[in-house]
Design a protein around this nucleic acid. Structure first.
Lengths: 216, 216
DNA sequence: CAGTTTATTGACCTGCGGGTCAGTAAATTT
DNA sequence: AAATTTACTGACCCGCAGGTCAATAAACTG
């Protein structure tokens, strides 16, 4: 079971290609022609696997999201304490493989479509709620109190959104280290800079580094 | 001097109309036809005042930005202390007239184009730098130290970006009060909750309220 | 009032992108 | 090997959006 049909594999190829084209050329520049070229087939071939362009792009976004989620789950599995879980979330959101300008472009392009596409709206909502509930459960278990946990979760998720935005707009040559430092600065101002937290941070940082290195 | 020619007035009309259409229908849905309809003229008339669509939309964004900036300057003029200046910035960024989902849609639509349009890139950069330098100068004068001021300025501008994003995506039914409360929560966690700051906040809140009420 | 500029428009052209379709080649099935 | 399903393609159609243009109406100028 779980064996993928050849058609399913092809669909995934096209979906990832579509996301890449979207990242490179924006929503307007993402034509069936270009997606086809990008995979070396004809336009009609793409339509053989997808009923229409909208469906293709929706699949592309779902696929991209699934990839991110997979990595996040892998990181999460390496964490055993609340603070480690928190830093697992951070590492996942700023993983070198995903926190890149091109990916951010794709993401922002989708955000711009959210008001006119219920599918995108649902996806965006799901992404947001997953992030929030992950953050919340981690913070709650640090023992800072439920209300504080709620507040900090909101703050962190807002910061993440802002940082991705800025990554896409390429403001201030933001890289992943800067981004994580920003989050860390807020966390440090909020919580006392205890040793346990610092240990969790460096542990997850090292694990994440090893994890991504194993695949390059 | 400063007298506007009738043609200039017309151009502004079309530009604001274009921004409204952009907010309602997104970049793809913003056609010359629709902009024309929205002002009750023919498509060709729009092209009489603008060389092409791109120029029209760029003018629309510049115009929208100019409007926001005008309001920000007005708020700023009402502030006399550093903390009042800070809250003037906040009030301006979350003014009821501007912090609305439709406006956020327009803004996000522009952000999505930034990678493919140098004009938008420049505009976005200008907006960001103005916000940052305003925040920075206000924070520096509160006497928290230059390094801390830099850090907090970054944090606040990131939060503002994130909040506008979330406003556009309409996640969690975010309204302007929630947004400002989020910022306040971070500020409170960072600084001691002194009376001077609280006074500044309520003063600017009242002034901003009076200011906007005077024009409805 | 004659002449000139300006405003506005409908008709038209062009290119392009989404989507259909019938046909061909390749793979699978029986 | 024959039949049938699947993969892929070029040719074609349609609609639409951007942009041009010539014509008309209105405003301004001397």
């Amino acid at each position: 079971m779980g064996r993928k049909s050849i058609a399913e594999i092809r669909r995934e190829e096209f979906a990832t290609a579509a996301f890449e084209v979207l990242s490179l050329h924006g929503m307007k520049g993402t034509t069936l022609q270009r997606v086809a070229e990008h995979t070396g087939v004809s336009k009609a071939s793409v339509l053989h696997y997808f009923p229409n362009k909208q469906n293709l792009i929706e699949s592309a976004m779902r696929r991209a999201n699934a990839t991110l989620r997979k990595e996040a789950v892998a990181f999460m599995a390496l964490a055993s304490t609340p603070w480690e879980r928190f830093y697992a979330i951070i590492e996942a959101n700023f993983s070198p493989t995903t926190f890149r300008a091109e990916v951010a472009h794709g993401w922002i392009a989708m955000c711009a479509e959210v008001p006119h596409n219920p599918q995108f709206q649902r996806l965006q909502n799901a992404i947001y709620h997953r992030l929030h509930s992950n953050l919340l459960s981690a913070f709650k278990q640090t023992g800072i109190g439920d209300d504080a946990a709620e507040e900090v979760s909101h703050t962190v998720s807002l910061l993440i959104d802002g940082l991705w935005m800025r990554c896409g707009l390429q403001i201030g040559g933001l890289n992943r280290e800067d981004a994580m430092a920003q989050i860390e600065s807020v966390i440090t101002r909020t919580f006392s800079n205890d040793a346990e937290r610092q240990a969790a941070q460096s542990k997850m940082s090292a694990l994440a580094g090893a994890f991504t290195a194993n695949r390059g």
